[in-house]
């Protein structure tokens, strides 16, 4: 009897322990809430694609000020064709924001004085109403601000959420914010920022050669362009991203949408690691990873051989016909153990 009781209590203890562990692993954000962000707030350095700010490394939680400006501007969408983009900090995608878990971020959103419309920002990295959208709505020429604590690590999309939201996103109002875990992501040799978006266009009545948003095509989810970094050829020719043989590359890939899910693939590479959907789950040996509209993924691979490696949305009509195409140029010595072209093998 006593033995049975001891056994029972032992089993109970094990179960209890397991439960407790379960709760802990699912609720790591609680400890982040209690982390103390040190010092006076400093202005955080942000970057335009394909550049990424420096890693957080092993620094502790800090206070930051992030300044973003919403603008409405003409820019080149393809070849010599212009489009009326709406942006964060005059680029599509908007500036890359890089912080760590426990950081306290004050986001100042300024809407340019010559904007026609109000804008705001919803950061998927924010825990709070609208991701900050209501708190940051700024009329033309006005500013709005809110402060949040980054409590969940991961790669997150931010975007404008002012009505009509598909139009604000369709015009390019999105970007990425990376929340690194304590101690930072593992070190790699190269990091790049890539964001896909679908664009729905028609000729502007006001100006020849200018394209503007087409509502009907957007509702039908039938884009004219599917682009990396807001412009056809943004990662081609002189703008190719680069690496050397033997280096590890990390791509922060987001998808602004507004509508399409990306089948992100690099031709001739296999992703050694994929942080699925930008979260903490790492999968290995992945050929193509799905990136939903309003989602992101971190992909990593080692460059084993030289060549030009083509980045595509493997829903291939988008790559072949609509612009979803970029290139990574890898330079260095060939490695015949990994890849050797044998040429024509037909006997003469």
């Amino acid at each position: 009897m006593t033995n049975k009781l001891i056994m029972l209590s032992f089993v109970m203890a094990v179960i209890f322990g397991a439960c407790k562990n379960g709760t802990n692993s699912g609720n790591s954000s609680q400890s982040a809430v209690d982390m103390v962000a040190e010092g006076e707030p400093q202005v955080l350095e942000v970057t335009g694609a394909p550049k990424v700010p420096a890693p957080v490394g092993d620094r502790g939680p800090k206070k930051w000020i992030v300044n973003l400006e919403t603008t409405e501007m003409e820019g080149v969408i393809a070849d010599s064709i212009s489009y009326t983009f709406w942006t964060f900090n005059n680029t599509v995608p908007g500036s890359f924001i890089r912080v760590r878990v426990g950081d306290e971020v004050t986001l100042n959103l300024k809407n340019a004085a010559n904007s026609v419309l109000p804008h705001n920002i919803d950061l998927h990295a924010v825990t709070g109403p609208g991701g900050g959208a209501a708190a940051t709505t700024a009329a033309p020429g006005k500013e709005a601000s809110f402060t949040f604590k980054a409590i969940n690590p991961g790669l997150y999309v931010y975007h404008c959420a002012a009505p009509p939201v598909p139009m604000h996103i369709g015009n390019g109002m999105y970007g990425l914010i990376l929340v690194e875990p304590a101690g930072g992501l593992p070190k790699v040799d190269r990091e790049y920022y890539i964001m896909q978006g679908d664009f729905y266009t028609k000729a502007s009545a006001a100006k020849k050669g200018l394209l503007e948003f087409d509502n009907d095509k957007a509702v039908a989810e039938n884009p004219d362009y599917v682009l990396f970094n807001g412009k056809k050829g943004s990662l081609l020719g002189a703008n190719m991203i680069e690496a050397k043989v033997g280096e590890t590359v990390r791509l922060f890939v987001g998808n602004g949408g507004p509508n399409l899910t990306s089948s992100f693939h690099v031709i001739g590479e296999i992703f050694d690691n994929v942080y699925l959907e930008g979260g903490s789950q790492v999968s290995h040996n992945i050929q193509t990873t799905m990136i939903p509209a309003g989602g992101a993924a971190i992909v990593e691979f080692k460059c084993e051989v030289p060549g030009e490696f083509v980045l595509v949305d493997h829903s291939l009509s988008r790559a072949f016909n609509k612009g979803a195409l970029g290139k990574l140029k890898v330079t260095g010595d060939a490695n015949p153990k990994v890849f050797k072209a044998n040429g024509a093998t037909t006997k003469e």
Partner: peptide, 24 residues
């Protein structure tokens, strides 16, 4: 589908009575 109306209402909700704006 009336995106134009959405835009007008978005503007109205973004302002306060003492706001002065370039195109208002």
């Amino acid at each position: 589908l009336n995106y134009a109306a959405f835009m007008r209402f978005a503007l109205r909700t973004s302002v306060k009575a003492n706001y002065t704006i370039a195109n208002l």
